[in-house]
Lab assay of single mutants.
Amino acid sequence: MTEYKLVVVGAGGVGKSALTIQLIQNHFVDEYDPTIEDSYRKQVVIDGETCLLDILDTAGQEEYSAMRDQYMRTGEGFLCVFAINNTKSFEDIHHYREQIKRVKDSEDVPMVLVGNKCDLPSRTVDTKQAQDLARSYGIPFIETSAKTRQGVDDAFYTLVREIRKHKEKMSKDGKKKKKKSKTKCVIM
C-alpha cells in the first residue's frame, strides 16, 4: 500500500485542523484551538488504489514558523489553505509557496490551493482571484467548507493525484537520464 505524506499549511484560523478532522473523523470542530502540530493517518481508496494518507496539520501562528522547514522537508505534497473571508490569509499563500519551493529546492512541488469556509456569506476573496492565482502557479484550486464537508475529500484526493503525477514524471525523467548515460565512448 502506497503511503502519501501530505502537509496542510496556511495562516492561523483558516480551518486547516477543521478540514483535516472532517476528512479523518467526519465531524466539524467549530471551536478554535490553535494547533502546534498534529499528525493523522487514514486509509482510503483513490482511483481504485488503496493508500495510506499521513497528514500533518501544522501551526499557522507566526511564533511556530521555525518548525516549518522541518515538516516541509518531509512532506510530499501540500494543501495551501486560505479562508475566503480573510484576504490576508490569501496573500500569505505566496509566502508559504515560496518557502516550500526553497526548502524542497524545487520549482515543481505537488500543491493544491484550497479556499476554505465557502459556506460563509462574508467572502472577501473572489473565486476568480483564487483561480487566477492557482493557474499562475500551475496547481489545482478547490473551494471547501469544513463545516458542510463540501470539497473536503476532493481537496485531499486531488493532492494525492498531483503527487502521483509528480512521481510518474520524475521516474520518466530518471529513465531518460539513465538511457543517456548508457551511451559509451570508444577510443581507438
Rank of each mutant, 00 (worst) to 15 (best):
F156A: 11
R164W: 12
V152R: 07
K128P: 06
D173V: 01
K172G: 13
F156C: 13
D173F: 04
V186A: 14
T158K: 10
R149G: 15
K178Q: 08
E162G: 04
D154P: 04
K177S: 10
Y137E: 05
M170D: 15
E162V: 01
G138H: 01
F156D: 00
K165W: 00
Q129V: 12
K165G: 03
K128I: 07
A130L: 14
A134I: 01
Y157V: 14
R161C: 01
G151W: 12
G151M: 06
V125C: 06
Q129G: 09
D132C: 04
V160F: 04
L133C: 03
K165F: 02
E168Y: 14
H166R: 12
V152P: 07
R164E: 13
D126R: 01
I187Y: 14
R161L: 01
Y157I: 13
A130M: 11
Q131E: 13
D153W: 09
R135N: 07
E168G: 08
V125I: 08
G138R: 01
R164G: 11
V160I: 14
E162S: 03
K178M: 09
Y157M: 13
L159C: 04
A130S: 05
C185Q: 15
C185A: 15
D132S: 05
K177R: 03
E162P: 00
D126E: 10
V160K: 01
G138W: 00
D153H: 13
A155M: 09
R149T: 15
D173C: 04
R164P: 03
M188L: 09
Q129W: 12
I139Y: 04
K169Y: 10
F156S: 02
K176F: 06
S181A: 08
M188Y: 11
G151T: 15
K182Y: 09
A130C: 11
S145V: 12
A155N: 00
R149A: 14
A146F: 05
D154N: 09
A134W: 01
V160N: 01
K169T: 11
D153V: 13
D154Y: 07
A130F: 14
T183F: 00
T127I: 10
M188V: 11
K182V: 02
D153I: 13
K178W: 05
V160Q: 02
K175R: 03
M188D: 10
K177A: 00
D154T: 10
D126N: 10
Q150M: 05
V186K: 01
C185D: 15
I163R: 00
D126Q: 06
E143G: 05
M170G: 08
M188N: 14
T127S: 11
I139A: 06
I187W: 05
K176C: 10
K180W: 09
A155Q: 01
K165I: 07
F156L: 15
D153P: 08
K128N: 09
Q131I: 07
K172I: 14
T148S: 08
K184A: 09
K167R: 07
Q131P: 01
A134V: 02
V152I: 13
K128W: 05
T144I: 15
D154R: 08
D126L: 05
T183L: 01
T127Y: 09
A146I: 03
K178T: 12
D132K: 07
D126I: 05
H166V: 06
F156Q: 02
K182F: 03
K172D: 12
I142R: 03
G151E: 03
M188S: 14
A155D: 00
T158L: 04
L159T: 01
A134M: 01
A155F: 05
